[in-house]
Design a protein around this nucleic acid. Structure first.
Length: 683
DNA sequence: TTATCCAAGATTTTT
DNA sequence: TCTTGGATAA
């Protein structure tokens, strides 16, 4: 059996009559506390169906589920809700769409859908909005949604510069509603609005979720905190677990202040600190503590461990990024051979996804198995977006984003001119593009031929949708893919036949995946991130339900389960949060990379430092930093400075390899200079 | 309406 | 360097 909980962990598990904040340092067993607590609650008599645990990533949710299943049997954990915030929000929306005056089968807009809708609105003339400001507006709208600011409130903000985006925000919200669609942010925002405005609905959910556990609480934004607060109600039956030093999502609206806010909002709040680390060698923790001490703190915390002090941390320097990749891959190969370990013991961590490229190449050339987490999402593939758009349209013809994506894919000879007219018409009549197609008024504006083509397309969708409802859904989907000649379209539009084949395989994999999720009923598996109370056992899921769920996931998420094997892990520092590896390489320890240039410019070094802290605390036994003196940027060679963070680490714990490149004193000197520069800049 | 070419801009991090 | 989008030609 697993080792005993330490006194603090035990206290955290057993505190169930007070709202509880657990400040859990890296590697202090926070997931264990949450899972043990779920088991404890169940054993104390709270039925699992009244317990909900929310996380931020699918990966974390999956991990938690699998660990709970080791503590409780199927019967005990029946109805337990372990899901991401967004997935919980989706469940709420799907159950309560009527109250929000939505129709069933809501479409979920992804980031691209959202952007193209905004573009469309601006081009159709929202007052004062300028086309080249779209990204700015989009960002602002996101900020508002994260901060629980409604369009109405945004419109009343005094800052005149915000009037244009506020008007766009309002129009955008109206459009989404008209399309029967929501975006990612709405999955949190709408439930909060719903709960605020409809007390009986809130009560129903408070009764359903009688104990709430929140993982990575420091990553919650204002809206998410509202949701937590509403669900927890006055009784405050919740446990949140977080670590302000690992707050690395402020750019996404996360409010680490939510940690201290909790004390203000819940007077009975208890706070428990977990400081014993079960992951890393003492020296790694010493270095991590040393680095993070450069940040201001509201909660003091110092990690320690009983796992021995360990080797010094190494710092490698390279003449360029190619050399960096070559040497580190060579080291991994050598080290693994020497120690007889597994490739799965090694992780290469970096700031930006693009940094993986050279390493990938090098690993491939050396026949080293590797696994990249997070890079290009499965859903960024055009073929996946296409097929999903078809399915979205089948389920919700009002989904204009989906309509636009597939109306001319594969080619149906419906071009921008026709669509422009169609769009204008739909806009005037306040109807969806799909509905506009069959309106008589449209025929007077566009050519006979175009009308026919549009009609033909609509017919295809309508007929297929009918078939989906009455017949075998997935047979129909396969038929549709065939009917539109998608395979040959791929062949014509891929660079190589092999690429076409691969893309077709993706499509088939997607459909198979959807099918699995549809058949599977709910609670415990990878695809479905939350047991849904909305349908009975054995019922299977509607296509709409499956699609919405799937958009919150990623096929990569699923593959990560198979990742466990003998493979080197490559991922961003963000993606590494929550993971651990015996041997960690943090590459690209350079100014403008870590800390990232944008963060330097916006004076947000603290979050970058936390990012470095997260990276360091992933390591169990050895940790190696590396930096280059030159690196190719945008295809051009440029000079690099070692990261200021290297200069912040205790020198006695570092070992400088390849000293010929740059003496440590010099690195320190430069690091200090960088620091001084920054201070000067801040005045 | 579609295909092709060229220029410009991108590389932070994600549900 | 690679991708994307716009302009232009067919």
């Amino acid at each position: 059996m697993s080792p005993k909980l330490n006194p603090q962990q035990l206290a955290a598990v057993k505190t169930i009559d007070h709202p509880l904040l657990v400040l859990a340092g890296a590697g202090s067993g926070k997931t264990r506390v949450i899972t043990e607590k779920i088991a404890y609650l169940v054993r104390q008599g709270t039925p699992a169906r009244h317990i909900a645990a929310v996380t931020f990533t699918n990966k974390a949710a999956r991990e938690m589920k699998s660990r709970v299943s080791k503590l409780l049997d199927d019967k005990q954990s029946r109805g337990l809700r372990v899901s991401t915030f967004h997935s919980l929000g989706l469940d709420i929306l799907r159950a309560e769409y009527k109250t929000l005056e939505y129709k069933s089968s809501i479409s979920l807009f992804d980031e691209q859908d959202r952007l193209s809708l905004l573009k469309n609105l601006v081009s159709h003339g929202i007052k004062d909005c300028e086309e080249d400001q779209i990204d700015q507006y989009n960002w602002q709208i996101g900020q508002w949604k994260n901060a629980f600011v409604t369009p109405k409130q945004a419109l009343h903000l005094p800052d005149a510069a915000l009037h244009a985006p506020a008007r766009l925000y309002e129009a955008y919200t109206r459009s989404l509603k008209a399309y029967n669609a929501v975006d990612f942010d709405d999955l949190i925002l709408l439930p909060v609005l719903l709960f605020q405005q409809h007390a009986p609905v809130l009560e129903k959910w408070q009764n359903r979720i009688r104990y709430l556990l929140v993982d990575e609480y420091q990553d919650t934004n204002i809206t998410q905190y509202q949701l937590v607060k509403l669900l927890a109600g006055n009784l405050g039956r919740f446990t949140v677990v977080g670590d302000d030093d690992q707050s690395i999502y402020a750019w996404r609206g996360a409010q680490p202040e939510n940690l201290s806010q909790l004390q203000k909002d819940f007077g009975r709040l208890q706070v428990i600190k977990l400081e014993q680390n079960y992951r890393s060698a003492g020296r790694i923790l010493k270095v991590a503590n040393h680095l993070i001490a450069n940040n201001p703190h509201t909660f003091e915390k110092k990690l320690w461990s009983e796992l021995g002090f360990g080797d010094p941390l190494r710092v490698l320097s390279h003449k360029n990024d190619i050399a960096e990749a070559k040497q580190i891959v060579a080291e991994i190969v050598h080290h693994r051979f020497k120690t007889g370990g597994s490739y799965g013991d090694y992780a290469i961590l970096y700031r930006g996804n693009h940094q993986s490229r050279l390493f990938e190449k090098e690993l491939r050339e050396n026949n080293v198995p590797y696994f990249i987490s997070g890079s290009a999402s499965f859903f960024s593939h055009a073929e996946i977006k296409d097929v999903l758009a078809y399915l979205r349209l089948l389920v919700n013809p009002g989904d204009d984003a989906a309509f636009l994506r597939v109306i001319n894919t594969p080619r149906r000879e419906i071009g921008p001119t026709t669509l422009e007219k169609l769009g204008a018409y739909a806009n005037e009549r306040h109807i969806s593009l799909f509905d506009a197609c069959s309106e008589f008024g449209l025929q007077q504006r566009i050519s006979e031929k175009s009308t026919q083509r549009l009609h033909k397309f609509c017919e295809l969708i309508t007929d297929t949708a009918r078939e989906v409802e009455t017949g075998d859904t997935f047979k129909t989907i396969h038929r549709l893919i065939d009917q539109i000649h998608y395979p040959s379209w791929l062949q014509e539009n891929s660079k190589t036949p092999a690429a076409a084949e691969r893309r077709m395989k993706n499509v088939l994999e997607l459909v198979e995946w959807l099918e699995r999720i549809a058949v599977k009923d709910g609670s415990s598996d990878d695809g479905d991130a939350g047991a849904s109370a909305t349908h009975a056992a054995g019922a299977g899921k509607s296509l709409a339900e499956v699609i919405a769920k799937v958009m919150l996931l990623d096929i990569l998420d699923r593959n990560q389960e198979e990742q466990a094997g003998d493979q080197v892990s490559l991922m961003t520092l963000h993606a590494a949060k929550g993971l651990e590896f015996p041997h960690v390489f943090m590459i690209g320890m350079e100014e403008n990379l870590l800390p990232h240039q944008n963060s330097i410019e916006t004076d947000n070094i603290e979050e970058e430092r936390r990012l470095a802290y997260v990276g360091i605390t992933r390591a169990q036994r050895t940790l190696t930093f590396s930096y280059c003196t030159h690196r190719k940027r945008y295809g051009e060679m440029s000079e690099c400075e070692p990261s200021r963070f290297l200069a912040e680490l205790p020198e006695e714990d570092l070992e400088w390899a390849n000293k010929k490149q740059l003496a440590p004193e010099e690195v320190k000197q430069r690091g200090k200079a960088n620091l001084a520069n920054l201070k000067a800049m801040l005045g």
